[in-house]
Every structure is written in structure tokens, then in C-alpha cells.
């Protein structure tokens, strides 16, 4: 799955002259947490997040109530946004996991998707969580089974041959190094239209494979 498949296209974008108060309102009304700031031709200029709008008292010259009002009514997003140089972006042909790694490495909640300097979409934690659910086939009913296999070439093929021999379908699949068991991999499969016990019985027949978890997911 690539970024272009799970990003949100046509995100809400604002121009640098937008007032900070307006930006806050747009975020609130549309329930979004990030607003790319774009110039002509959707060129990325910066990013507004909720944190950027949490203004610190020392930014203002005075704490006089009237001064604050005046300051806020003239404050445009260009003054508070995270400038492009500091915004982490991704291009639409990257993989989802690369986007996820950028986001976790820099601890950011979203990445504007930029092709040739033009914003084509935005990918947020929520989008990644959605694609994670999709990969494991969450919305549909089925049996979710986790099989622990040795980290040896050919072990995965054994599972697939059993699955194909049973003529089962697979709606979601994932594999990762077993937590706290070096030298093993956990393979998660989502199989529709089968019975839980049947899956457990058949998959644990293979020598060296252990069914660590099996459950109905609805």
C-alpha cells in the first residue's frame, strides 16, 4: 500500500493571509487537526497545527486585554505556522510504512503529501491506523489466527500450502518478529467462513508451528 492509496485527497488548505482566529474556527468546525498553508498553485508554505495556535503569552508585547485583542485580530497564520523548511513531508509514491516511520521518528501527527512542491493530500495518524485495520481485514467477519513459526526460510510456505489445500480465503495478513521470542515470527491471518477450532486444529498440525492465538473477530 502506498501513500497515494491511503492519504486524504483534497485536504482543507488555507492561505497565508488567513487570520489565526479563522484557522482555529475552520479546524474546530471541520474537526481537523492540521491545516496546510498554501500559496498560489497549492505550493506548500507551512503547516498549522493546534499546538501552533496555542499562543504563548511572551509572544505578545503586552498582556493588556486591549492589546491582546488588537494583536489577535491582526494575527495571520503566516506568523504562527510551522514554515516549510521544518515541515516533514512525504511524496505520494512512498510506502505507507515509510510514512509511518517518518511520523514516529519525528513524533508528528501528520505529513502533507507533496509532489513537485504541490500539495496533493495529507496523511495523518488516523489514515495510517485505517490502513492498518484494512491490512488485517478488520471490518469484515472472520477468524483471526496467530501462528508462531521459526525464522527459517520455507516456514511461511508451509502455512500457505495448508491454507490453499483447505481452499480457505485470506482477507488480511501480517507478520512480524515475535515479541520476546527471538528467532520466531508471528504470522496473523484473517480467514472468513471457517470455524475457530477447525483453524486451530489444522494449523497446529504442522511441525514447529504453534497457534498462539485464535479468535472470532466480528
Amino acid at each position: 500500500m502506498l501513500v497515494k492509496d491511503c492519504m486524504t485527497r483534497h485536504p482543507i488548505m488555507i492561505s497565508p493571509e488567513t487570520l489565526a482566529t479563522e484557522a482555529q474556527k475552520i479546524m474546530g468546525e471541520n474537526d481537523v487537526r492540521h491545516l496546510p498553508v498554501v500559496g498560489d498553485g497549492k505550493k506548500l508554505l507551512g503547516l498549522i497545527t493546534r499546538e501552533r495556535l496555542a499562543l504563548k503569552p511572551d509572544m505578545m508585547g503586552s498582556l493588556n486585554v486591549w492589546e491582546i485583542t488588537r494583536y489577535l485580530s491582526n494575527l495571520t497564520v503566516v506568523k504562527v505556522m510551522l514554515p516549510t523548511a521544518k515541515v516533514h513531508t512525504v511524496d505520494s509514491e512512498r510506502t505507507v510504512e515509510r510514512a509511518a516511520s517518518i511520523m514516529s521518528e519525528y513524533k508528528v501527527g501528520c505529513l502533507p503529501v507533496v509532489d513537485d512542491g504541490v500539495v496533493v493530500g495529507i496523511i495523518s495518524e488516523i489514515d495510517l491506523l485505517h490502513s492498518f485495520q484494512d491490512m488485517l481485514g478488520l471490518p469484515a467477519d472472520g477468524v483471526r489466527v496467530t501462528v508462531r513459526v521459526p525464522n527459517v526460510k520455507g516456514e511461511f510456505a508451509k502455512i500457505t500450502s495448508v491454507v490453499s489445500h483447505q481452499e480457505w480465503g485470506v482477507m488480511g495478513i501480517g507478520s512480524f518478529p515475535s515479541p520476546r521470542h527471538a528467532g520466531f515470527y508471528d504470522v496473523v491471518l484473517k480467514i472468513p467462513n471457517v470455524h475457530k477450532e477447525e483453524v486451530r486444529a489444522i494449523l497446529s498440525q504442522t511441525a514447529g508451528h504453534e497457534v498462539v492465538d485464535v479468535r472470532d473477530v466480528v
Partner: peptide
């Protein structure tokens, strides 16, 4: 792509 939460409308 399934299960996208309801987004605000474009128009």
C-alpha cells in the same frame, strides 16, 4: 479503502 470516518463535505 474501507471504514473512513465521515469527513466534512467538500461543498
Amino acid at each position: 479503502m474501507t471504514g473512513k470516518q465521515k469527513k466534512s463535505p467538500v461543498l
